[in-house]
Design a protein around this nucleic acid. Sequence first.
DNA 1: AGATTGACTGCAT
DNA 2: CATGCAGCCAATC
Length: 113
Amino acid sequence: MSSETSGLYERIYSIVRQIPYGKVASYGQIALMVEGSAPRIVGYAMAAVTPESGVPWHRVINSRGEISKRFGGTGDADQKALLESEGITFNEKNRIDMKKYGWIAPEFLLQSP
DNA sequence: AGATTGACTGCAT
DNA sequence: CATGCAGCCAATC
């Protein structure tokens, strides 16, 4: 990673940090809040995130309300455990009820270029 | 500089 | 509701 980012990652992390406890947001939702980004970029930013950044990446899931599986990783299991520890429940299909836990971002959080 | 990939999404089948 | 295809943009090879 370059010595200095274009700020895109920081913006994404900033949004993810706004997700309150017990709520979840989708990659596309975040991508819509960050101008100049795309669902792929959000996913890439989450892959590059580190525990030290203090970003609750486990609260970021795909539009289906399910945890995305990554390359040969077992992180998906940890993510599920973290979400359950926050009071979020999964249904039989291992999916989250977005109607109940879906995070609605306030307007003032939206970026206006 | 061009091609490939990736923790995705939405619509069509 | 599951599967397939196209669109999306940055990072990596």
